[in-house]
Structure formats: structure tokens, C-alpha cells
Design a protein around this nucleic acid. Structure first.
Lengths: 342, 342
DNA sequence: TTGAAAGCGCTACCAA
DNA sequence: TTGGTAGCGCTTTCAA
């Protein structure tokens, strides 16, 4: 900026005024300065601006489990759409469900003085964010509530969605409905499992002895778990898949079977209508999760005070075929012996 | 930091030394300072650091067409993995193929003084980046080369991949192979179309009259284009889909047909093996695109000079079923009249 | 081992 | 309409 001032033969302050589009500059001077700017390829330094103005960076931090998982990248997209007009950029990082990595990311983002933070929290305590929130950083928790911390939160209707999905299966005559999910210490898994159990209980089915497999974090392990369930002495005729990865695992497993059992999965995905049978899912507006979180965080940036707010995104069952197979249509699976015994 | 100094009853400089882990501080002093830091919840200000040190922000900017497209989010993931250990964060933005929006994003990122820029360029001139590159910003172009600018580039083997994919189809006896793609002013489309044409020409087929449909940017329009091709008087018995969106469109269209034509698509996707028939694709390591681009940009950040480099990611044909239908197996499609005529 | 002072690039404030 | 000066929070340099 100093160089520009020299080049244009005006004062530093005048250049500053031109760069910031202040009105009180003579058109001739403005021209001169702009010429000097483009001659020198000058670009104003946001650090110095932010420092002087006691401002934060025009960025939002977004920490999810994995930026390449479609669920999270849809959220990222929603956030971006919502804050585009405010000139905010989005810094996205993947925690890989590792609390240490998540904390490292969040602390880096705080040091960079981002305007706000959107977090899909891993398990464990997030109390370390309390001082930041105290210092004015806007923090919103997404998809899972924070442990040990009061902060704005956007959640899905996990319980209601899972319950409706399972009820949907029950309404087609199934009595033996399996559940496959990730670790139950993940909030969404626990809530969906609860929805499943309540749906069973309401139908007079003993949820205590229901065919449940947990701890599946990828489609491979989910496929193995599904196979296990289908090889039980009294195998389920229908399956509830707790998230998109589990659904993919179940589909992998079905690929090897002559006839699939009924299936409803939590999370919609682009190719669901193209599979055979097309996959019935518990669906919701994924980008809206991001948009709503961004709105909450912007409110706080704009100075809104008050107690933590909670926003819940509704879900709907989208029937496509896989969830409408009737219990009596589903063949009692051929009792294939496990490979090791074969 | 001043407050911490007062609280710990030491000088500003001593606090700075502790914060930066410099060795020349007495252990007792260090303890005191650390206590004061945690009491006050102090966090150092990266703006002031960057300003004083004439440093750039510890961030990489990544501008793609759409962060929620799996192809681009896989790249983002690759970039993140590669730079994680260097403590770099990734700011990701979507251009939506709009040159103005892309330019706005890139200029914001430059103003924020990011350490480097990774760009999947839209059509149009990128000469406006030349001064930035001159000022030392590391820029790498990804997936498409820059117009009118010398810069490091990571590309796929678009030509070779498409050619192999089409040759694969030809080897199953097809003589009438369709091509559906996006606008040909997108570099990847043009290269893949060229690969298609060369493969046809090498097989003695007149590429000039081949069934080609371009300008499809989403799966909807791709599905319409595929339908058009299949309703031609002399319809193709095989189809080459120019990218993942086109492939999805073709699959949508096939869903309504009794028997699909042979299909090979550029870009692999998670559910490809689960469709019926499983989808044969031209595949490559998506995350490696991001990793390699990140390596190039880091080299430049580390001061490497020299002429622009180009890195080409190899592709392979992954045969799964849809691309191995023989020409004589594919039924001459029933000549369904167009809806308006029906 | 510790501290004082200068200055990074910019804008707020006051003066002309 | 313009310009000078101070200072944002930090690190660098030099001195004690």
C-alpha cells in the first residue's frame, strides 16, 4: 500500500480510502490510485485489516468426520450456499472420529480467529471450547449434541426417523427385524437404536432379544454383520440399516443372495432409486442441515445472545421397493453354513 | 498477550517465548506463564503473527466446481491428507462453473494470503492470477489446464482413458457406440471425446457420423440425451458416458428399459459394483489427484523454482459387467415412439 | 535468562 | 477532499 501511495503520489490514507471504496475521494485521484494498484498488482492484506479492526477472519471452520463422505460434503455445500452472500469462506477439516485430531483442528481454527465454528463432534468432552465461546467465537454443533457444553445445535430427528422406518417394515408383516449400526456411543446410533427398540416394543415384540449388530464403521464390516444375522437360526426377514455406510454393506451382502430381505436405511443417496430393488430410506434435506447450522452461527456472529438453541430437522420415509417386501415374500434364507465350517 | 504478561508478572517478550516454545526460559517462569495463559484462556493471534513474520496463512485454498460432488470431495480429502502433517488447513469453495464466482473466490483467498491455491478452473482466462503467482503465491491447476498461464498442473489421462474405454466396448463386437458428455469447451470433455473418436477411427468406424450428444451437465439431461440416442433409427448398441453424472443419467434411462445397452463410464463410484449389471468404468485414484496437487503446491511453498510441471494420473478400465455385454446380446431396442407422439 | 523498542500493513481518529 | 499519527498483537533485534 505504501508502494501504491508512492506510485500514485498520494498519501497512504488516500490509497486506503480507494481500496475500501470510501466516497470522499476525488474521481481523478481514484483513477490514479487504481492505475497504480493494477500496475503494481497490489492486493490488500487481510491480516493487517483484521488485526487493526479487531475483526475475525471472514471464514467459518467446519469440522466433520470426513469431508469426502457424501453426508458431510452435502452439509459443507449447504453451509457454503448460506454464507456465500456474506463473503464468508469455509475451512473444512476431517476428524476421522479421532478426538485428538478434532481438538487439534478446532484449536488451529480458533488461533486463526475464524468467525465461527461448525462441529460434528466426536465422542468425548468438548469443554475445552468453553473459553473460546466465552471469548466470543460462535460455535454450533451439528448432527450430534455437545458433551458438557451449552451451545447451539442442529440435529436430525434420529429417534423419530428410525422409529418410522422400522414401523414401515413392521407394517408389511415383519416380526423379526434386524438392526445394524455403528458404535452405540455415537449419539446418532444410540438415538436410532432407541427408535428401533420403541417401534418393536410398540408392536409387542421383545426388543431385548432382537437381532442387533453394532460397531460397524464401514460397509465391509456392515456386510459381515448382515451375513451373521442372516445366518442365525431364526434369521430376520427385514433389516434396518443405521446409516448410508451400513446400507451399502447390506447391499453388498444381498448381492451374493438369491433373494434379499426387506431393507430400510437411514440416509438417502443418489443411486438409491437405481438399485434393484430400489432402496427405501429414511430421508431428510441434507444441505438444509448445513444451511440451518450456518444460520445459527451467523446469528451469533451478528451479536445475538441468549441461551443455546436447538434445531431438529424432520425426516420422512421414502418408499422405493426394498422396504415394501412383505414378510411372506421373503424366502426363508437357505441356511448356508459359514465358510469356516464349509 | 499483554494481559498474560501482567498476570504472570513477566515481560511481553517472555510470554512470547513461552508460547513459541523457545528454550531460553527458566522452567519456573514457564510454569508461571502457562498458568496465567490457562487462567485467562489466552490464544495467540495468528493474524498478528503472520503480519509480523511476513508469513502467509497456514491454509491452502481449493476451488472446485462443487464441494459436494464426490469427485471433488475425494480430491479435497486427498489434499487434506497430504498437508495434514504440515499443519495446513484447507479452505474449499465451489465455483459452480461460473467464471465470475471462481474469480471472486480466488481473489478472496489471495487477499487472505493463503499459502497456496489449488484450482479446478472453469472455462475462460486465468491471466488475472499471473500477478499473484509473481508475488509468490503457489498455484496448481487440477483436472484441467489453465488458459493463458504457466502453472503446475495435475491432469487425468483423459484421452487414454476414454480411448481404452471405447476400445473395450469395440472389442465386444460393437460398431455403433454412442458418446454422451458435457459441453466440449470443458477440457476433460474435449479430451475424452478425442479419445472416443480416435478409438472409433482406429477401428475403421466413421467418427464423423457417430452418435454423440454433448452439453449434458446433470444426470437428468444426460438421461434425456441417452433416450434420444436409443430412439435413433440406427441406435447404438453401446454407450460411453463421459463422467459420473452422465453415467447416472444413463442408468436412470436404462431403468425404464427391458434390456440395457452396453455401458462404460468415466469415473468410478462406490456403488458401481452393486448395480445390475455392475458398471464397468474407467477408473483412477481420485484421492491421489488431490495428494499429487498438494505435493506440487507444497514444493512451490518450500521455494522450489523452475518451469511449470505437469503430472498425469493413469487410468484403468475396471470390467464389471455392463461393458462386457456383446453387441449381439443387446436387443435391438423396441422402437418406442416419443411420448408426444404416443 | 530476561526486557525494551521498533515495526509488520492497515485503519481510526483528528487535523488541515 | 486529503494527510499525519497512533496503534492493533505479535516477533525481531539489540541490549542488559
Amino acid at each position: 500500500m505504501r508502494d501504491v501511495a508512492l506510485e500514485a503520489k498520494v498519501s497512504l490514507k488516500t490509497v486506503s480510502r480507494v481500496v475500501n471504496g470510501e466516497s470522499s475521494v476525488a474521481p481523478v485521484t481514484t483513477k490514479q490510485v487504481q492505475k497504480a494498484i493494477s500496475r503494481l498488482g497490489y492486493l490488500r492484506n487481510e491480516h493487517a485489516r483484521a488485526l487493526r479492526q479487531q475483526r475475525v477472519l471472514q471464514m467459518l471452520g467446519l469440522v466433520t468426520e470426513d469431508v469426502s463422505n457424501p453426508f458431510y460434503s452435502a452439509i459443507a455445500r449447504g453451509v457454503e450456499e448460506e454464507v456465500r452472500d456474506r463473503g464468508l469462506l469455509v475451512v473444512a477439516g476431517s476428524s476421522d472420529e479421532d478426538p485428538a485430531r478434532e481438538r487439534a483442528l478446532l484449536e488451529m481454527l480458533c488461533e486463526q480467529r475464524v468467525a465461527g465454528l461448525l462441529v460434528v463432534p466426536t465422542r468425548g468432552d468438548h469443554g475445552f471450547l468453553a473459553p473460546e465461546i466465552g471469548h466470543g467465537t460462535a460455535v454450533v454443533f451439528v448432527d450430534r449434541p455437545p458433551d458438557n457444553l451449552g451451545a447451539d445445535t442442529v440435529l436430525l430427528d434420529n429417534f423419530g426417523g428410525a422409529r418410522s422406518g422400522v414401523e414401515h417394515l413392521l407394517s408389511y408383516g415383519h416380526r423379526r427385524v434386524g438392526f445394524v449400526g455403528d458404535l452405540p456411543d455415537i449419539y446418532t446410533t444410540a438415538e436410532r437404536l432407541r427408535g428401533y427398540e420403541v417401534a418393536l416394543a410398540d408392536a409387542g415384540i421383545d426388543a431385548g432379544h432382537a437381532p442387533v449388530r453394532l460397531g460397524c464403521h464401514d460397509s465391509r464390516s456392515a456386510a459381515a454383520a448382515v451375513r451373521e444375522l442372516l445366518e442365525l437360526p431364526d434369521p430376520p426377514t427385514a433389516l434396518f440399516a443405521c446409516n448410508n455406510r451400513i446400507t451399502f454393506g447390506a447391499l453388498q451382502c444381498f448381492g451374493a443372495m438369491s433373494r434379499p430381505v426387506a431393507l430400510v436405511g437411514f440416509d438417502d443417496f443418489e443411486l438409491a432409486p437405481l438399485l434393484s430393488p430400489p432402496v427405501t430410506v429414511v430421508s431428510y434435506d441434507q444441505a438444509e442441515v448445513g444451511r440451518r447450522a450456518a444460520r445459527l452461527v451467523c446469528d451469533r456472529i451478528d451479536g445475538m445472545n441468549g441461551p443455546p438453541r436447538k434445531s431438529v430437522i424432520p425426516t420422512t420415509v421414502v418408499a422405493r421397493g426394498s422396504g415394501e417386501l412383505k414378510a411372506r415374500q421373503v424366502a426363508a434364507p437357505r441356511r448356508r453354513p459359514a465358510r469356516t465350517r464349509g
